[in-house]
Nucleic acid binder design. Structure first.
Length: 479
DNA sequence: TTAGGGCTACGC
DNA sequence: GCGTAGCCCTAA
């Protein structure tokens, strides 16, 4: 039997979860498990915002945030969003300044050197690139002004004091937080939340459903309702395509299907319930009741998946990693969200507990995929970190979750936005001379093989490096 | 945590 | 196409 959790349902779930205070690991794992389409920039943006939030959760900012903001700007650009938020510009500028000026607080030539390196990296590198690409979404007068001053401070110590004084007026974390909040406010609630909300209000639901079927939609909140409208149309399309039964209900079944959406009434009046015909009151009421009855299920599924989702994800991941596990027929190994299993615990579990022993014993013949192999984008180079790479979608994407046969599973390039703990190919990043110098000094001071100590000692210089990187670099240097 | 082998993107 | 640098995986 064929897979599945529909790619749209995955998106709805993820869209909802990404707004929840879940542990990043849970979210990361879910991203790896859920089939995702590449065509929803809103979700991509949500994921980026989520990553930004994670970054500032420590109360500090890093250059990674600049990366994320650049990616958000690119998404906005692709979505042809003309009105650029001042807050993103302010956030970008504040983070860039903070990531540079921090080195001025260090004493001695070492600090100076790192400052110079940061100016080169951030302002001559990133910011210049922005200017060349005319990325107006991030460039501000303030950014330009800082650029000049920070450059000048490289050569003139007296300007350093000005820079330090001026930078005290910036609160990068707050600036980023304001921006993220603004974006979140603009994006509004997730589709699932809207549906849940709609199901509580008869009139609103009725209007939405009418809209979904091509009826005139009149509402006071065109943003949200239109979005739901679009999604509801999608529900219609999906359900028609899949010839799923009458009632509209988002059902998550763990028995035979990973998850499926069944339809708005397509029978009886169904033929008349074509996209551009208004549904009858009876139909609307039926759908409304169905929605109400399923909304609790839905909410139960999505509200608190954390503990068991983690459990599930870990089991699944470990099952993937186990060479000697067998593979059951797909329908037995599908990850579904089964409310019936979760009644007592609120757990998200698959297939009535199949995942308790997630892979069974039949996977012995399945070749063990490397983590890289699971990630179709794992070999992305630095360049395709940008959203451009999202066009590389696999033809099979969205075909659903196939567990535990990851070699068949298509992983969306959305994984580029995975969270830290997920394996992905890092950017190819050349070592700067300052990094090489720090490594040499470190080895001289602590000896070869003390990579962790050296890394910690020169943490600021070795940005985004690991102990292994240091070891590898030393290997190269001494070849 | 470290060492070493292997893969692949990069640069010529 | 080739050599190298950077990155990943895995064993110890």
């Amino acid at each position: 039997m064929e897979v599945d959790i529909d790619v749209d349902i995955s998106r709805w779930i993820l869209e909802f979860l990404v707004r929840q205070p879940l542990d990043d690991r849970i979210l990361s794992t879910l991203i790896t498990l859920l089939p995702l389409s590449n065509e929803n920039s809103s979700l991509k943006k949500s994921l980026l915002l989520r990553r930004i939030e994670s970054e500032i959760s420590t109360g500090s900012v890093s250059e990674k945030i600049l990366d994320f903001l650049e990616q958000v700007e690119e998404l906005d650009f692709q979505d042809k969003i003309k009105q650029h938020s001042d807050l993103i510009k302010a956030a970008y500028c504040s983070v860039a300044v903070a990531c540079t000026v921090k080195f001025l607080n260090e004493k001695g030539d070492d600090g100076k050197f790192r400052y110079f390196d940061a100016v080169k990296r951030i302002w001559r590198g990133r910011v210049c690139k922005l200017e060349k690409a005319d990325k107006v979404g991030l460039i501000s007068e303030e950014l330009r002004s800082w650029k000049d001053e920070l450059e000048a401070a490289v050569w003139d110590d007296s300007i350093c004091d000005n820079v330090l004084r001026r930078s005290k007026g910036l609160d990068a974390v707050a600036a980023v937080r304001f921006y993220v909040q603004e974006e979140k406010d603009e994006m509004g609630p997730s589709f699932l939340e809207l549906v849940a909300e709609a199901s509580m209000g008869d009139d609103k639901l009725r209007r939405l459903l009418q809209g979904a079927n091509g009826g005139t939609l009149r509402n006071s909140d065109p943003g949200d309702d239109n979005r739901v409208n679009v999604e509801m149309r999608k529900v219609n399309v999906i359900s028609r395509r899949k010839q799923i039964p009458k009632r509209f209900r988002a059902a998550f079944s763990g028995t035979s299907r990973g998850a499926k959406i069944t339809d708005i009434d397509t029978s009886g009046a169904g033929s008349s319930c074509k996209m551009f015909n208004l549904p009858s009151t009876l139909q609307v009421n039926e759908v409304q009741e169905a929605l109400k009855s399923s909304s609790l299920e839905l909410k139960a599924v999505v509200e608190d998946p954390l503990p068991d989702a983690l459990n599930l994800a870990e089991k699944v991941l470990s099952s993937i990693a186990r060479k000697d596990t067998g593979m059951k027929p797909v329908e037995e190994n599908r990850v579904g969200v089964n409310p019936s299993v979760s009644e007592s615990s609120g757990a998200v579990q698959a297939n009535g507990g199949t995942l308790g022993n997630p892979c069974g014993e039949n996977q012995k013949d399945a070749p063990r995929p490397s983590l890289m192999a699971q990630n179709s984008t794992a070999h992305a180079s630095e360049c395709d970190v940008s959203v451009d790479g999202l066009a590389e979608a696999s033809p099979n994407r969205g075909s659903g979750i196939r567990l535990p046969s990851p070699e068949r599973r298509v992983v969306s390039p959305l994984k580029k936005y995975e969270f830290n703990n997920l394996k992905k190919k890092r950017r190819f990043k050349r070592w700067s001379t300052s990094e090489e110098d720090a490594l040499r000094i470190g080895v001289e001071k602590y000896g070869r093989g003390k990579w962790k100590i050296i890394l910690n000692e020169y943490r600021d210089v070795f940005e985004e490096r690991t102990e292994v990187d240091l070891k590898d670099k030393w290997r190269n240097l001494t070849r």
